Amino acid sequence: MTRVAVLVGSLRTDSVNRQIAESLRAQAPADVQIDIVEGLGDVPFYNEDIDADAPPAAATSVREQVAAADRVLVVTPEYNATMPAVLNNAIDWLSRPYGAGALVGKPFGVLGVTPTPYGGKWAHEHARLSATIAGAVVVEDVTVSQTSIDVDVLNDAEVQGRLRGALETLVAYVPEPSAA
């Protein structure tokens, strides 16, 4: 069983990106468990002072959910040409303690939709960069940026196929052996 922790970049209840995450969970192969990480909106902005002694329960919960996964998938819109603050904050918490955070060594992918001509490409690039700095292993072939607002992404067979394909690529990813 491969466990995939999904971080949704939108807190809105009816977010299309949340619906995509739920759709992927419903369609996941039998040997893949999709866990949508809940509680991102409850995590305070990262502050080393509050992380030092006793991290807040919400941050600890997010860390534990991601640490328990084999893979991490971000499904996010783009806000003002970057990733939403809630996603950036989650990656900040997941990057600590430095060198031993919950993202270290985890295969990581990003996908999502946003009704702009750029389809979220900057949010996806920024999330991949931040995750790389946090120690994740970014799987470059796991990217779906939907640009057309004229497409019903939840019911379009081609878009759904690309989303499932991205998930399958992430699940199948085998890290390169490290040189010793």
Rank of each mutant, 00 (worst) to 15 (best):
P117G: 15
D150T: 11
L154S: 05
I149H: 12
Q146M: 12
S130H: 11
A157C: 01
G120W: 02
G119T: 07
H124S: 15
E125S: 13
V138D: 02
V144L: 04
Y118M: 11
E125N: 12
Y118I: 09
V138K: 00
G120E: 04
T132Q: 11
V153S: 09
V151G: 04
V159K: 00
E125V: 08
S130E: 10
H124T: 14
A136G: 12
V138T: 14
D156P: 05
P115M: 06
A123T: 08
S145N: 15
V159A: 13
L154C: 02
G135M: 04
I133T: 08
A157T: 08
T143V: 14
A134P: 06
G135S: 04
V142K: 02
E125R: 08
S130G: 05
S130M: 13
G120Q: 02
H126S: 11
Q146H: 06
E140I: 02
G119K: 01
W122T: 14
A157D: 15
T143C: 10
I149C: 00
T147E: 13
D156V: 05
T132F: 10
Q146E: 14
S145G: 15
S130K: 05
T132I: 02
T143P: 00
R128V: 07
A127G: 10
L154D: 11
V159W: 07
G119R: 01
A157V: 14
Q146K: 00
P115H: 07
T114S: 14
D141P: 01
D150H: 12
K121E: 14
P117I: 03
P115W: 05
D152W: 02
V142W: 04
L129I: 15
G119H: 10
E125Y: 12
E140S: 11
T132W: 06
A134S: 08
E140T: 13
S148V: 01
A136V: 11
N155I: 01
Q146F: 04
L154H: 08
T143L: 15
G120N: 03
G135I: 09
T147P: 03
V142Y: 06
T132P: 00
A123Y: 06
R128I: 05
D141Q: 14
T114G: 06
A134K: 04
S145R: 00
L129Y: 13
E140A: 15
Y118A: 06
D152L: 05
D156G: 04
S145F: 01
A131Q: 06
L129T: 14
V137H: 08
T132H: 11
A157F: 04
A131L: 12
V151Y: 01
Q146L: 15
T132A: 13
S148G: 09
T114Y: 03
A136P: 11
D150R: 10
L154F: 03
T147K: 10
L129P: 00
D156E: 02
G135T: 07
V137L: 15
